[in-house]
């Protein structure tokens, strides 16, 4: 995207304009909300954060303490890093699994965004024969229960000689009906026809129009789709477990092995949960700013 400065300028200008407008609006109609709003949000946040905090509490404790106290203490104990160390040192191939997860999640997120935006652009803004039925078909594919697809999908992967390889996890996730539907719905509203027409008048080919106009307009939705896809494939368990197995695992598959002992050592298991969630939280913090500003720029069309 960086190779086309023109686009960034346009997007930037549009965003700036809309941001300015919003600022003006803030002074007028949209006053800062009162404490009730913050109280509600605080409560929502508390509920959202507690289970994860609970995992941290268990991860920083030890097996005996957890077993003896069903209600954990309010503050973490001191064993968090010891326990995460135990997870990394155990024979579950933590680092290779982490690397596999990074590869799978990154490749999937990137490819889903590109292909979904492409298809969403086509479905929402271009006219072609069979558009309606094809879109319905895409959505209908989501209704197929995934549990049953496992055996035939495994057969496909075995035919392609991909079982046990990362490609077997990446390929089925490279473009999703969800992503296509999501981008279609977003671009439907967020991309004005005037922009496309303008680009066409300027002599842009279809693909350039897509790249110069649709992509920038899709940025906020694309950022979210990327994040959702990344998280989704990072946390996916069943299919990677079946097709990869413990030989070449992704992180959730590897971490599941922490439960392979005779009893559930929750301090170890939850340390695994925390260790696998930390990278996501980091992605979150880094992408978060981008994501929120992305959302703010959502009104390119102004």
């Amino acid at each position: 995207m960086t190779s086309i400065p023109m686009i960034q300028q346009t997007a930037g200008a549009g965003a700036a304009r809309s941001a300015a407008r919003r600022r003006g609006l803030a002074r007028g109609a949209n006053r800062r909300p009162g404490w009730v709003t913050y109280a509600v949000l605080g409560a929502v946040l508390l509920i959202s954060a507690y289970p994860l905090y609970y995992a941290v509490l268990l991860a920083s404790s030890d097996a005996i303490t957890i077993a003896q106290n069903p209600i954990p203490s309010l503050l973490p104990e001191g064993n968090l890093f010891t326990n995460i160390g135990r997870v990394i040192a155990s024979d579950i191939q933590f680092w290779p699994a982490m690397w596999n997860s990074i590869v799978v999640a990154t490749v999937t997120a990137f490819s889903v965004v590109v292909f979904s935006t492409l298809a969403g652009f086509s479905f929402s803004k271009l006219r072609f024969r069979g558009r309606g039925p094809l879109l319905v078909f895409v959505i209908a594919t989501m209704a197929v229960p995934t549990q049953l697809g496992i055996v035939p999908l495994f057969i496909v992967m075995a035919e392609l000689d991909l079982t046990g390889k990362l490609a077997a996890v990446i390929i089925p996730g490279m473009v999703t009906a969800f992503g296509v539907f999501w981008m279609t719905q977003y671009l439907e509203e967020a991309l004005p026809y005037e922009l496309i027409e303008a680009a066409r008048v300027d002599g842009c080919s279809m693909i350039r129009t897509f790249w110069h106009v649709a992509m920038p307009a899709a940025r906020p939705a694309a950022a979210m789709l990327a994040l959702f896809t990344f998280v989704g494939s990072w946390t996916n368990f069943f299919w990677p477990f079946i097709v990869l197995g413990a030989g070449n695992p992704t992180l959730p598959v590897a971490l599941q092995l922490l439960q392979a002992s005779y009893f559930k050592d929750y301090s170890l298991i939850m340390a695994g949960v925390v260790a696998s969630t930390i990278p996501l939280v980091l992605v979150f913090i880094v992408a978060g700013r981008q994501l929120v500003t992305g959302i703010m720029q959502g009104a390119v069309k102004g």
Partner: peptide, 23 residues
């Protein structure tokens, strides 16, 4: 060495692969 955590998971894995005829 490919290890599954629980016997249920190992069973799912075995059955799927037997049904698919490979792996």
């Amino acid at each position: 060495h490919k290890k599954a955590a629980t016997s249920d998971e190992a069973r799912d894995n075995l059955n799927t692969r037997l049904a698919a005829g490979s792996g």
